[in-house]
């Protein structure tokens, strides 16, 4: 029986299994080389040390802290992540394994698997960087729940935008400079909302303050995910 003839539920189950297999393959190959993990981690650590050494917790006025800390946190997070996010597709082109992957899995499964890997990479980076940032920069939040929600939504949103851009640049030239050129303007509106949400979580204890930015991030993430899901097969099979 061909895949198209299977009932809908079984097909979606098999898609989920395929996506998880792609994710497992990504994790195994990353744990073997640890290129993305070490480049993202070291980039984040060196940038944080440079920023903390120059600015530190006491060189900013108390009333300016939430604003500057939120902006610095997301700038470090995004630029550190951008050294590892494009690798999911660039390494397939470099190692000439993209053709095999095209034959082995459906585009939707490849996209979901790579998206989940990038999401895990971003969440791992946040788990590593945020406590260090809080210690080195004296960063504190009043609404911890809203802050964690902003971090989770930011991870998903940045992973959604950057996975599609990574697929585009891998087919274009594979240069990570091009990744930054293409990804930064696309994620800038999201970064604006994320910085706003983090600032609100740092200054106000009630949920209503962070909600408008959180809603904007989630809706932008949703739109990006849906558009990417439609566009990915075209980019992957061009």
């Amino acid at each position: 029986m061909t895949l198209e003839k299977l009932p809908g539920e079984i097909r979606s189950l098999s898609l989920l299994r395929e996506s998880l297999t792609v994710l497992r393959k990504e994790l195994v190959s990353e744990l073997r080389s640890r290129v993305a993990l070490s480049s993202v981690g070291l980039f984040a650590l060196t940038t944080l040390i440079a920023v903390a050494y120059q600015i530190g917790p006491y060189r900013i006025h108390e009333q300016d802290r939430p604003h500057l800390h939120s902006a610095l946190l997301w700038i470090i997070l995004f630029f550190a992540a951008s050294s590892g996010l494009p690798r999911v597709f660039v390494k397939e082109e470099d190692a000439h394994t993209a053709k095999t992957l095209r034959l082995a899995a459906r585009p939707a499964a490849v996209f979901t698997g790579k998206l989940l890997f990038n999401l895990l990479l971003l969440l791992g980076l946040e788990a590593f960087l945020v406590p260090l940032f809080a210690v080195f920069m004296g960063f504190a939040v009043k609404n911890i729940g809203a802050f964690f929600l902003v971090l989770a939504a930011g991870g998903l949103g940045l992973a959604a935008s950057s996975t599609t851009v990574a697929a585009i640049i891998a087919r274009a030239s594979g240069s990570s400079t091009l990744f930054v050129v293409l990804a930064v303007p696309l994620v800038l509106p999201m970064l604006v909302f994320l910085i706003q949400g983090t600032r609100m979580a740092a200054t106000a204890a009630d949920w209503t303050a962070a909600l408008p930015a959180l809603r904007a991030v989630l809706s932008l993430t949703g739109v990006t995910l849906v558009t990417s899901a439609f566009l990915f097969p075209v980019v992957w099979h061009d």
Partner: peptide, 16 residues
């Protein structure tokens, strides 16, 4: 193909 994909992805951020 790649420019069209990027243009469509970029356009959806415009309303925001």
């Amino acid at each position: 193909t790649l420019a069209a994909a990027y243009a469509i992805l970029a356009f959806v951020t415009m309303p925001f």
